[in-house]
Nucleic acid binder design. Structure first.
Length: 531
DNA sequence: TGGCAGCGCAC
DNA sequence: GTGCGC
DNA sequence: GCCA
C-alpha cells in the first residue's frame, strides 16, 4: 500500500565520484525497510559515489540490511561468510548521513551467529517481513510492533531502526516514480534538494505506527471497512513534511475525519492511544488476531475457536472442526509466513515456464504479483497463464498441476477450480496451493490463473497489482461508465435491476497498455505500480 | 444513509 | 447460506 | 473508519 509514489523529482542528481561513499559497491536487503526511506538511502548512496548492485555479486563491498535475519533470508549464510563484503545495519547509513562522514563500520556489523538459516522463530521472522500489502490490508502482520518486540536481539538500535510498516517495501528500480496520486497532496519529502542535508522521513511515525496496528486488529475482528480507513489514512500522514503537533494541522486532509483527528490529538499529546492499549492487552483480541493469521481462518472462525477455549496455535491442532485448508494453513504456518527471495521466484518462474512449454508449446506463463512489480522478496507467487491461440489454454491447468505434483513442486492443494471448459467464470481456471523450491520442504503459497487470451491483459493487470492501482483503475473505469475486474472491462449495465449483465462480453484488449490507454490512465511499467 | 468489488470455492 | 481469500 |  502506501502510495510511495510521492512526486519524486525526475532529476536524478548526478552522482559524485568523490562523494563520501565513493568506491563502495553495495547490495541492499530491502526486507523490512520502509520504501520511502529505502528510496532516499539509494539516492544518497548513488549521489555520493556508491554503486548499487541488484544482485549479491562478487564485487559487492557492502551489504546493508535491517538486521541479520532479513539478511539471511535473502542471501545464503555460506555466500555471506565466503564473501569479503561488510555486512552492515542500515543504521550505519543513517548515522553517516547525519554525521556527514562515514561512521566507524565495526560498530554496525551484523552478526550471523543467531538464527539458523531457516530456523528463525516465526515471530522474529514475521516482524522483519511484514506482508507487503498485496491486494488488501488483509493479513498484514502487526508490522512494526512485531519487528521490535520479537527480535530485539537483532536490533542495533530499536529506537527507530526497527521501523517497519505493514505495507510495501518498494524496490524502486527507478527512483523517479511517477506520481499518479491526485487525491493526496504530495509535499516534497526527503527527495534531495541539492543540499546534502539528510531528512529522515516518517516524522509522524508515532501516529502511523499506531494506526498500522489498528489496521490489523480491526481486520482480525472482521471490521474490514474500519480497518481500511486506517489503511488509507497512513499514506496521507506519511507524506506530511512536518511533525504533527495538533489535530488542527490535519483536519482538512483527505481520509482524516473526526475520529482520526481525535486519535491523532491523543497520540501527539499523550504519546499513546488508549484504545489501542486496551486492544493490546485484551486476551480475546490477541488470540483472535493470532488465529486469523492461519490461512483459511478468518474473523468468524477465529472467534469460534476462541470461544471453544483455544488460546494457542498448538491448541488448534486437536480441533476437529478445522477444514482441510485450515489444517494445512496451520501445519505450514511458519512456512507460509516466510518470504521468498526474488531470485528464487525467478528460478521457479523459469521452471514453470519450462514445464508449461512441455505440456503446451507456446503457453505463456508469467509470475505476477509483487515479483512482477520488482520486489526483492515475495510473500507468495501469482502465476498468470494464457495461450496466444485463444483456445488451447483450455484444459491446460489440470495437466499442468498434475505434472507439477508428480515432480513434487506442488505439494498440497488448497483450492482447485476449472471452468474454461464450461463457460462460467469467464473461463478462468484457478488453482491455489502450496509449492516448494526444488530440493526443499519449505512451503510457499502459489496461485495459478489461466485466462483466455482475449482477457489475459485484465488478468495480468489485476494480478500484478498493486491493490491501490487496481482500485484506482476500477474507479476510473466506473467513472467512465465501465466495470473493470480481472476478467475484463464491461460496458456499465447500470440502471434498474441487473447489476452486471453476465451476457455482455468484455471489451477485448491485447495488452495492458491498451487497457491503460483506453481508460486514460498514464502507463506504468510493472515496477512502477507500487503505489 | 449507504458506498467502500464481487467472485467461486469449501463446508 | 456463511466464511474465506483473492 | 471516511465520504458523498
Amino acid at each position: 500500500m502506501a502510495p510511495k509514489s510521492t512526486s519524486k523529482k525526475d532529476k536524478s542528481p548526478p552522482s559524485d565520484p568523490d562523494g563520501m561513499f565513493s568506491g563502495m559497491v553495495v547490495f541492499l536487503i530491502e526486507t523490512g525497510v520502509q520504501s520511502r526511506r529505502l528510496q532516499i538511502w539509494k539516492q544518497k548512496l548513488v549521489q555520493m559515489g556508491a554503486k548499487i548492485e541488484e544482485r549479491f555479486s562478487k564485487n559487492v563491498t557492502h551489504v546493508f540490511a535491517i538486521d541479520a535475519n532479513s539478511l539471511l533470508q535473502k542471501v545464503d549464510r555460506e555466500r555471506l561468510t565466503r564473501s569479503k563484503a561488510k555486512l552492515l545495519a542500515y543504521q550505519w547509513l543513517e548515522d553517516s548521513l547525519t554525521k556527514g562522514e562515514k561512521e566507524f563500520e565495526d560498530l554496525y556489523v551484523l552478526s550471523l551467529q543467531s538464527g539458523g538459516g531457516g530456523s528463525l522463530s516465526p515471530k522474529a521472522d514475521n516482524g522483519s517481513h511484514p506482508n507487503s500489502s498485496e491486494i488488501t490490508p488483509k493479513k498484514g502482520r502487526s508490522s512494526a510492533e512485531d519487528a521490535k518486540n520479537a527480535s530485539p536481539r537483532h536490533m542495533i538500535d530499536a529506537k527507530d531502526l526497527a521501523v517497519v510498516d505493514s505495507r510495501d517495501t518498494k524496490s524502486a528500480s527507478s527512483l523517479a516514480t511517477r506520481s499518479s496520486s491526485p487525491e493526496v497532496a504530495s509535499p516534497e519529502v526527503g527527495t534531495s534538494d541539492s543540499s546534502s542535508l539528510y531528512k529522515p522521513p516518517d516524522l509522524n511515525r508515532n501516529i502511523t505506527q499506531i494506526f498500522g496496528k489498528l489496521i490489523n486488529i480491526y481486520r482480525a475482528l472482521g471490521d474490514d471497512r474500519r480497518s481500511f480507513s486506517y489503511y488509507k489514512a497512513i499514506p496521507v500522514i506519511e507524506k506530511l513534511p512536518f511533525k504533527i503537533e495538533s489535530a488542527n494541522q490535519v483536519k482538512h486532509l483527505p481520509a482524516i475525519g473526526k475520529s482520526m483527528q481525535d486519535h491523532i490529538q491523543e497520540i501527539v499529546t499523550t504519546g499513546k492511544l488508549s484504545k489501542l492499549e486496551h486492544f493490546e492487552k485484551d486476551e480475546k483480541v490477541k488470540t483472535i488476531s493470532l488465529f486469523g493469521e492461519v490461512w483459511g481462518i478468518g474473523p468468524a472462525t477465529a472467534l469460534k475457536l476462541y470461544e471453544k477455549g483455544h488460546r494457542t496455535l498448538d491448541d488448534l491442532r486437536n480441533e476437529d472442526s478445522l477444514t482441510h485448508s485450515q489444517r494445512l494453513g496451520l501445519k505450514y504456518f511458519d512456512d507460509i509466513q516466510s518470504r521468498i527471495p526474488r531470485h528464487e521466484v525467478e528460478e521457479m518462474e523459469r521452471l514453470l515456464q519450462k514445464i508449461g512449454e512441455e505440456i503446451l508449446p507456446s503457453v505463456i506463463v508469467v509470475c505476477g504479483g509483487s515479483y512482477r512489480r520488482g520486489k526483492s522478496s515475495c510473500g507468495d507467487m501469482d502465476i498468470v497463464i494464457t495461450h496466444a491461440d485463444g483456445k488451447s489454454h483450455i484444459g491446460f491447468l489440470p495437466k499442468f498441476v498434475k505434472r507439477l505434483k508428480d515432480m513434487k513442486f506442488l505439494r498440497e492443494d488448497l483450492v482447485f477450480s476449472v471452468h474454461s471448459t464450461e463457460g462460467t467464470d469467464s473461463g478462468v481456471d484457478t488453482y491455489f496451493g502450496l509449492c516448494t523450491y526444488p530440493g526443499r520442504e519449505l512451503r510457499h503459497r502459489i496461485d495459478f490463473k489461466v485466462y483466455p487470451r482475449d482477457i489475459y491483459a485484465f488478468g495480468l493487470i489485476a494480478w500484478t497489482g498493486n491493490d491501490v492501482l487496481n482500485r484506482r483503475l476500477r474507479l476510473l473505469a466506473e467513472s467512465k461508465g465501465f466495470h473493470l475486474d480481472d476478467t475484463g472491462l464491461f460496458p456499465a449495465t447500470h440502471g434498474a435491476g441487473g447489476k452486471r449483465t453476465k451476457g455482455s462480453a468484455s471489451l477485448k484488449f491485447d495488452t495492458e497498455k491498451q487497457v491503460f490507454d483506453f481508460l486514460g490512465f498514464p502507463w506504468l511499467e510493472p515496477n512502477e505500480r507500487n503505489l
